[in-house]
Design a protein around this nucleic acid. Structure first.
Length: 483
RNA sequence: GGCGAAGUGGCCGAGUGGUCAGGCAGAGGUCUGCAAAACCUUGUACAGCGGUUCGAAUCCGCUCUUCGCCUCCA
């Protein structure tokens, strides 16, 4: 079965076909860097990370572009209010660019810990002002945008399909009951700003054909997406809350400028809720990743996220995290056991698991179903290892490859065999292994002499120190406790 | 008010008409000095009410409830 993707624009599942065979251009809306990343960022970027990983696994060459918004989004209304980064700079008594750089580094730090691979290109809005101006000029020249006193607005009336993504197509009907105030200088209340004139004291500003100002809040994605991925991008991803107005505006300004479809497949991931309520900064229930990582292994968070579908809301709770932690530990234990077992004669057929995993991922990236295949595989593998004959070296190698490929490279919830490890970490691990070998030998001797008092004391003390002992048929094994 | 999503067993969470999701927690068992792990067994869940059908968690209608967007937000 070919890869199926749910397209938010058509609201149906479609067979994936990129513009250029074998190559995928993918754009994902990145963060606005004025604060530390939270669980919502984690869900979004882990989800799209797995999308990119799966496409690569399927043989595509993927160019993944994810912007950093370091200017232009306002605190308040679409065209009013204060620049959020500028405000944060004022609060921290520093420069907006320092705020942007600081939180950009913080963002990547957190994403690295979650195992999110870096985008191929991570363009910043401030680094692409000329491209944004060029796009605006194109829109002004073709009559899709107009200037009023140094401000440029996109004329929604010039693009009849405006709102097709969110289903908000009747602009006049939308005006009743809306909370957006009517701005007199705009021709239509739904028109949105492409360029804003810089007021007195505005810090982040650039020269333009219309005077000193700064770009509006939707242009950057269109300009940067088209610059690096062409006028039609294969996949454009983002959070559901960005469907309107952000993505509808992107479509309007891009398609009005080029006359070509802007995006082939729109993908929107759902929100994180905390006890059933949307997580948001204003609600003071947002879960900061750095705080969360203090108590929870980032990989557990990643696993937790992948245990639900990207289009489903994810409800965060301590209990749910604990359940995920136990589940992940089960899979990890199985792999550890596999790596520590000695070869025998038994065989295990991997084909069915590979097929089921592939089918799940090809069906709109159904990671929870794919994870369940991992559990089924673990069970089958454990049963095989339980049998007195053990598993043949060939079967063991195949099983290891299965983990390495699907749990490691594709889902990123386990180390991949060829991962790079720091030398220091390697050395301390070596030392620990030698020490543990000595302790386990002494304990084995104690058990042989039926000195269970001593053997249990060793086990208990080690557990206190964070090392867990398990007695198996093939001798004792140990592992560092996580979480 | 408009647009959109969703309600699955104690909890999390798949499943677009017909033999099993899966995980966590719980119970019983095998193994074991004990423990842990693993494995086996164990749960007649699909918001409610109607309808279509030989057959519905899955399709249709109504009702109830929740959530998101319509203001920046992943």
């Amino acid at each position: 079965m070919a890869l199926q993707i749910y397209n938010s624009l058509s609201r149906t599942r479609e067979t994936f076909e990129p513009v250029h065979p074998g190559v995928v251009g993918m754009y994902v809306c990145g963060p606005t860097v004025y604060g530390h990343a939270h669980l919502g960022h984690a869900k979004s970027y882990v989800s799209f990370d797995v999308v990119a990983r799966w496409l690569r696994h399927s043989g595509y060459r993927v160019r993944y572009v994810q912007n950093i918004t370091d200017v232009g989004h306002l605190t308040d209304d679409a065209d009013e209010g204060e620049d959020k980064i500028a405000r944060q700079a004022r609060l921290e008594k520093t420069d907006p660019m320092e705020v942007a750089q600081y939180y950009t580094r913080s963002f990547y730090e957190d994403m690295d810990r979650l195992g999110v691979e870096r985008p191929n290109i991570a363009p910043t809005a401030t680094g692409h002002v000329p491209e944004q101006i060029a796009l605006i000029e194109r829109l002004v020249a073709s009559g899709h945008a107009y200037e009023v006193d140094g401000n440029i607005y996109f004329s929604v009336g010039s693009f009849p399909e405006y709102g097709k993504l969110s289903g908000r197509t009747d602009q006049d009907a939308l005006q009743s009951g809306t909370r957006v105030e009517v701005r007199s200088e705009k021709r239509h209340p739904s028109d949105f700003a492409l360029w804003k004139k810089a007021e007195e004291g505005h810090l982040m500003k650039w020269n333009s054909p219309w005077g000193t100002g700064y770009p509006g809040w939707h242009v950057e994605c269109s300009a940067m997406s088209m610059k690096y991925l062409g006028e039609t991008v294969d996949i454009h991803g983002g959070g559901m809350e960005n469907k309107f107005p952000h993505h509808d505006c992107e479509i309007a300004q891009s398609e009005a400028a080029t006359g070509k479809p802007y995006v082939r497949y729109w993908m929107h991931n759902n929100m994180v809720t905390v006890e059933g309520v949307k997580m948001g900064k204003s609600l003071k229930n947002s879960v900061n990743l750095k705080d969360l990582f203090r108590t929870t292994d980032p990989v557990v968070i990643r696993f937790f996220i992948l245990q639900s579908h990207y289009r489903s809301p994810l409800d965060f709770s301590e209990a749910a995290i604990r359940a995920s932690s136990s589940g992940l530990e089960k899979i990890r234990d199985t792999r550890r056991r596999l790596q520590e077992s000695s070869p025998g004669e038994g065989t295990l057929d991997m084909g069915d698991f590979v097929a089921r995993f592939t089918e799940a991922m090809d069906d709109d990236f159904n990671t929870p179903l794919a994870v369940s295949v991992l559990f089924d595989f673990s069970k089958a593998l454990n049963s095989a290892l339980d049998k007195s004959g053990g598993l043949s070296a060939a079967s063991m190698a195949k099983a290891e490859t299965f983990f390495d490929t699907f749990a490691g490279k594709v889902l990123g919830i386990m180390g991949s065999g060829d991962r790079e490890k720091g030398l220091a970490e390697e050395n301390s691990r070596d030392a620990l292994e030698k020490v543990m070998a000595i302790l386990l030998e002494m304990r084995a001797e104690a058990r042989k002499n039926r000195d269970f008092l001593l053997s249990d004391r060793i086990r208990d003390k080690l557990l206190e120190a964070g090392v867990e002992i398990k007695d198996t048929r093939e001798g004792a094994s140990w592992s560092l406790k996580t979480g």
